[in-house]
Design a protein around this nucleic acid. Sequence first.
DNA 1: GCCGTTTTCGGCCCGACTGTTTTCAGTCG
Length: 573
Amino acid sequence: MENAEIARAFSQLADLMEIDGANQFKVRTYRNVARTIEGLAVPIASLRDEGELTRIPGIGKSVASKIEELLDTGALKAVQELQDKFPSGLLEMLEIPGFGPKKAGLVYNELHIESLEQLEAAAQSGLLRDLPGMGPKSEQNVLRGIELHREGRERALLGDALPVAEALAAQIAKVPGVERVAVAGSARRGKESIGDLDMLAVGEDPSDVTQFLRKLPHISEVFLAGDTKVSCHLADGTQIDIRVVPPKSFGAAHQYFTGSMEHNVALRQRAIRRGLKLNEYGVFEEGTDKQIAGATEEDVYAALDLPWIPPELREDQGEIEAAEAGELPQLVGMDDIRGDLHMHTTWSDAEAGIEEMVEGCRARGYEYMAITEHSQSLTVAGGLSPEQLQEQIAIVRGVNERYDDIEILIGAEVDIKPDGSLDYPDELLEQLDVVIAAVHQGFSSDADRITSRMIAAMQTGRVHIVSHPTGRLIGKRAPYGLHIEKVIEAAAATDTALEVNAYPERLDLKDIHCRLAKQAGVKLAICTDAHSVGMLHYMRFGVLTARRGWIEPGDVVNTMPLARLRRWLRGTR
DNA sequence: GCCGTTTTCGGCCCGACTGTTTTCAGTCG
C-alpha cells in the first residue's frame, strides 16, 4: 500500500469521526498523521519492517497498529464501521465551502439527508431553516456552496499562480492608503500547487483600505468582507484572501499568513512555553497587551529565540529544531545558478532556434548552457537520428565559437530503452558534453522494472543527469511506480545527478525527494527543459522546489563555475 | 490519540467572519 493511500485512510477516518462527534483532539491526531505520512519520502512499509513507526513524531502505539492493519489488510476496521453508520454522501458534503462535519451530522440525524442532491432539494424547499443554528441565509449559502463545489476548481500550478499573485499585488499597491503589499500563503512558500492566494496589505486604517479592495476591477465577486479581511474570486475562479494590517503588525501578519499552519502551530506552542502569545498582530507578553515584536518577521522569530526561517522551509519538518541549533541550510538561490543544462530547439519539438535560445540564456546572465534535443526513439517529439545529432554537434560547436561570454555545451536528452540501454551508440554519446537520460515510454510497467531500467542506464557510466526521474505531471499523471530510494542509492553510487525539472507541471524531483537525495549525497541539476525562450524563466520554480528540499548551492551541479562543471562532466565516466 | 524545559495527567494555536443568536457555534486557514 502506498503512503498516499494510507494517508487518505487516516484522513477519511478523521472526517467520519468528526461527523460522529468524536473527541476533536483525537480527530486532529489522525489529520496530523495523514499529513505526516503524505510528506514521508520513503515508503512507510519499510519503516514498519524496521520497527521504526513509533519513532515518527505524532505516531504512537495506537496509530502504529492502525498502519500495520492497513498494510496487512488494506483497510481499517474503524473506517468500515463508521462507513456502515454514515452514508458516503456525507463525506462529499464536507467539500462544500462553509459546510462542515457538524452540519453534515445535523442534517443526517434530523432530516435523514444522505447526499448532495437531497441536501440541495432540502435547501430549496426551505427545510433547513428549522434546524438549530440555521436560517434562511444558511440555505442560500448551502446552495451557493454546492454550485461552487460542482464547478470543481482544481488547484493551480505554482507557475501559474505566483505570477498572478505578483501582478495583483502590484495593482493593490496602488490603492489609496496601502503602504505595502506582500504575497503570503503557499505561493510564498513555493508549494507546487496553490489552493488560493493569500495577500497582505499594510495600511494605517484597515477598514478604509478594505472599502477600496472590494471595488478592485479584476475581482468578479467579493463573497466575504470584514474590517480587516476581504475574500473574493477572480474571473477564472481563483480565490484570493487579502488581509489588511497596520505597519507595526506587518511582520507578524506576514509570518502568520505565510504559514504553513503546522509551522505556525509549532511556533505558537513555542511562544506559550516562553510565557508569550503569538498571533497575526505580534508577539505579546502573556495576559497583557504589551507587544514585544511584530513589525518584521525577523523580530517575531527573534522574540522566540530563533533566526529568521526561509518561507520554503516552514512546514514543521524539522526547520524549527534546525533553526534553534543554528543549523539551517544556506539555501540555493537564483543568483547561484550559472547555467541551464536542459533545453530544446526547433531541431526537435521546440519553438525557438539555437541562436534564440543562446540569446535568451545570455540575457539571463548565464555562464553556460546546454542544447539537449530528444533522441531518435522519441519520434513524436522529433527525436534526432544519429546523423542529425552528428550534424547538430558541429553546428553548436560553430555557434559556440562566436560567443566569448557564454559557453554553449552540446548534449542530448537520451531515451532509456525498455532494456535499460541508451538510445544512441557509445561513439556518439562520447562526443557529447552532457548526457541526460530519461524514461518516456512504458510508464505502466511495474515498479521493479522501471527502477531497474533507470539503474541500468546510470550504470552504463555514460549518463550525467537523469531527467524528470519520477515522470509525474502534477494533477494529471501519477509518478511511475518507482522505487525512488533505490534510484537515489544508484545515483549516489554512480555520481549521477538527478534533475529538478523546473517545468511547472513537472517539478520533478519534488521537494521531499530533493531532501532525500541530499541526505544520500546525490547531486541535483536544476534545469528548465525549456521549449521556448520564455520558458527559460521556469528556472525560478525549480529553484523554489529545491529550496523546499533544503538544497544548498553545493548540492547543485549547475552552480559550479564552468571549469569545475567540465571536470565533473568528464569525471570518471 | 499524542506528548512532556509545569512529564504519566491534563492539556492540545488563535483569530476573523458569518449567521444565528442575545452570547455563541461552526467553519476556515
